[in-house]
């Protein structure tokens, strides 16, 4: 074999290897296709599968109905109670994460000296790495009794499984995420803006809240939107601490059921393939997927916007 033939063979082998890498990279596309296909396919089955009374679920009844009783008669598939449950917990979580996460990020980027930063960052990383089932346990056995004592001492009524406890703990769970993305946005604000503010005689709090935070606003909003998306898709905290009673309410002291908690409830019972319950989790899943996907796309668009600015 002479030299040119040798290089030719090698070039062929290498092109072959690169093509293998390319086909492996296609797995991520196949995953997306599979997710979309099965969500839509089983949702289609959901709308064409007979209910126990012989009728079919109508799409608008599914989207705008306020009664969710898939497991007992008469069956009713209005998803709004689940959506309300998810939103209620998410709102509480986002309020907590916004207050804590934004304060922490401003403190880290504007106030904290390097040695304190080096202590705080690992604490946030640990908080971010705790499994959600552990947060659920914490909500149920630690936060809920405290809330029950406080509400009870004011003579209020509260159930063990409530949206408030789950929301507060979920807020803690997404705080590291919100503070990390916000901090990145704050740090990427050019030093010259801060210098200009100080030169005008502003103190640190004025510089931080009237110059730096407004300049980083799109990044901060992105952190909140990605946090919302994370909270909507979170499963174990709401399953353990918020209950399993689909309840069309915005009272945080009541027991609710989130969309993800419903999926878990059905999954635990090994719903038989092809049954209406089996299809139901995909219909709920599709709505969940649409909500988180649109929030993620919007959040990432905001992040790319602030990184363009400076």
């Amino acid at each position: 074999m002479d030299y040119t033939e040798f290089t030719k063979a090698r070039r062929f082998r290498e092109r072959f290897a690169i093509n293998i890498l390319r086909s492996i990279a296609m797995i991520s596309i196949l995953t997306t296709i599979a997710i979309l296909f099965f969500l839509f396919y089983e949702t289609f089955n959901f709308f064409t599968n007979e209910m126990e009374d012989g009728g079919f679920v109508k799409p608008w009844e599914f989207l705008f109905g306020t009664k969710w009783t898939p497991l007992f008669k008469p069956q009713s598939f209005g998803i709004l109670p689940l959506v309300a449950g998810t939103l209620l917990v998410t709102i509480i979580a986002v309020i907590v994460a916004l207050i804590l996460g934004l304060s922490i990020s401003v403190f880290l980027s504007e106030y904290a000296p390097e040695n304190i930063r080096r202590i705080i960052k690992p604490i946030l990383e640990v908080l971010a790495g705790i499994p959600t089932v552990v947060y659920g346990y914490f909500a149920l056995t630690f936060v809920t009794p405290i809330i029950m004592n406080i509400v009870g001492s004011f003579g209020g009524n509260i159930i063990i499984f409530n949206a408030l406890s789950a929301g507060l703990v979920m807020g803690l769970m997404i705080t590291p995420m919100v503070s990390t993305i916000s901090e990145d946005a704050l740090i990427s604000v050019p030093q010259s803006l801060r210098d200009a503010s100080y030169a005008m005689g502003a103190k640190k709090f004025q510089t931080a809240f009237r110059v730096v935070v407004p300049a980083a606003l799109s990044g901060i909003s992105a952190s909140v939107i990605l946090g919302i998306s994370r909270a909507i898709g979170e499963t174990m905290i709401v399953t353990i601490a918020a209950g399993s009673t689909p309840n069309f309410t915005f009272n945080p002291l009541e027991s609710i059921q989130a969309m993800t908690a419903f999926i878990v409830q059905i999954s635990l019972g090994e719903a038989p393939h092809g049954s209406l319950e089996y299809n139901t989790i995909f219909a709920v899943g599709l709505l969940l997927f649409m909500m988180t996907l649109s929030l993620n796309i919007f959040g990432k668009w905001l992040v790319s916007k602030y990184s363009e600015n400076y």
Binding site: S28, T32, G233, E234, S267, I281, F282, F289, K300
Partner: peptide
Amino acid sequence: IKVNISNLAGVPSIIYGIIGMA
């Protein structure tokens, strides 16, 4: 492919669960 991967990272884990089941 790149955009798709970053979107897949944001899909809630329970969705992977029911898709894996299907």
